[in-house]
Write a protein that binds this DNA or RNA. Sequence first.
DNA 1: CTAGGGTTAG
Length: 546
Amino acid sequence: MPVRDVVTWTEMITAYMEFGMVDLALETFEKMPEKNSVSFNALLAGFCKNSEGLKALKLFVKMVEEGLELTDFSLTSIVNACSLLMDSKISKQIHGFCIKFGFGLNACIEAALLDMCTRCGRMTDAEKMFQKWPSDQDNSVVCTSMVCGYARNGQPHDAISLFCRSLKNVDEVALTSVLGVCGTLGFYQIGEGIHSHAIKIGFMFDSEVSNSIISMYAKCGNINGATKVFNSMPTKDVVSWNALISSHLLHRQGDKALAVWSRMLEAGTKPDAITLILVISAYRHTNSNIVDDCRKLFMSMKTKYDIEPTSEHYAAFIGVLGKWVPLEEAEQLVNKMPFEPDISVWRALLDSCRIHLNTTIGKRVAKHIVAMEPQDPSTYILVSNLYSASGRWHCSNMAREDMRAKGFRKHPARSWIIQDKKLHSFYARDKSHPQAKGIYSELEVLILECLKAGYVPNTSFVLHEVEEHQKKDFLYYHSAKLAVTYKLLVSKSREPIQIVKNILLCGDCHTFLKHVSIVTRREIVVRDASGFHYFSGGICSCRDCW
DNA sequence: CTAGGGTTAG
């Protein structure tokens, strides 16, 4: 067979893989009358490109067993496959294989290995490789891998600090990643600084960078900044529209989100699956009169926009129903689904049970969730909290003990604030802050003032079995209360107080913060898992439903 | 002809 034919076949495999047509690529590969190592490598790389880590690994094993020629390209791809599998043990085996393989590592393999380490949780190994990287070599790729690795592994400070230390080496990819970190944490000043830097080094019109700036501003509470950046973009892709719609959702501006959706259609941009998840969700933040519009949209997804509803779309729609119509309708929809509902659907239904305070259906739903994800610690907490809410402490503790016995750890609930470009994070009854003493005594005073202003503690949000008189001790030291107290202590300006919380704000903290906004006459902005709460003069923008 | 890092949602 002439070489040119092998080249053509191989190019076809790559092209199919590029467009996600894995089966066609494989078919082509099998039909090839003659294969060389390049065609194997193309298939291997294609699997990785399409997140088929296991298929890539199996192919690689086959290549080794059959004694096929392995090259730098094969190694880079198999390292990538390990990154997809995120398995520390396999990653070490492949790591060793690459080193033993002999003919020296090149920059691509090294960079892939470093990235693999960050994805398998081997941050110390990644750091070692990073330090050894020759300084005369261009290392914008490994720099970015390291920044993203820190971001992924819960080390946002290291991500930002490395980014700032290597400004000469960062490019648009590192920018988007670190902007994501700023958004997650609510690091407004730093995010703004990075925005300026992005303009300075010429990425003002890079759409990926702009997209992440939109989302960064929205997550930091500046919805106008997000809108401004969006409007300034000369070309908006579907991600830009999605980012703006989700920005409005985060601020519970359902009408504005729907208005952007109309503009998007007028502009002729084809929505994708994420767009529809967002637009359906937007109806949570409108009113009960237009639930039917949402229903119509949901029913016409396939015919009008050629998007097949997935579990995520169902979950979003159930979230809307759960908010505006009787719970039974949401439950019925789950039972009538044309395919097996996944965990996101059950979680949405459970969330609706929370809004309706319906523990009967709630417990039933929770059982499904536990059965589906026995590995997930948050499931046990969900069940435990559900029992606590109805006073069944024994069952509640059993769920927690069950979780501990299995060695799972829950992701702790946290609230944090930013002060002097530093993050101060608190968990419930946290005494680890250097100023803990001052915070607790200040909080005592604040509680007294709020009680005077009419705050009535609601001990049903205490999720542990304790004596009634002890309950308030648990309630008073929730993380959001500690965070707001600390901020009041250190910032005397009239600026709004910004708090970020990684889960939902509890009902008692919500009531408390309303009173804090009265007695301190300061605006309080909380971003929790449901979006923004703006407290001012005793009222919250979420209208007490979140 | 084949290889290394990223953005929107949950």
